[in-house]
């Protein structure tokens, strides 16, 4: 299906947030990461339950250097 991932149109076979993160090679155990789908935060405990739908806007963020 087609989704928007961090602003880019992306084709994915992932059914859930967790599968999507694995598909993009994210280290799920690394701290400092968060996910929002359609402007709602998906808590880490919900990553495997939260199903993705066509057209979803997914944001994956990390904490990084900042002032």
């Amino acid at each position: 299906m087609d989704i928007k991932l961090n602003g880019n149109s992306t084709q994915t076979n992932a059914q859930t947030v967790k599968e999507l993160l694995k598909e993009t090679g994210q280290d799920l155990e690394a701290g400092g990461m968060a996910v929002a789908v359609n402007e709602s935060v998906v808590a880490k405990e919900q990553w495997s339950a939260r199903r993705l739908e066509e057209g979803d806007r997914v944001e994956v963020i990390r904490a990084t250097q900042g002032g």
């Binding site: 602003g7 090679g25 944001e59 994956v60 963020i61 990390r62 990084t64």
Partner: peptide, 15 residues
């Protein structure tokens, strides 16, 4: 302080 930015999904070699 730290900033919040989109993860680099192509490259996991971020500091």
């Amino acid at each position: 302080t730290v900033a919040i930015r989109r993860a680099n999904l192509e490259n996991n070699g971020q500091i």
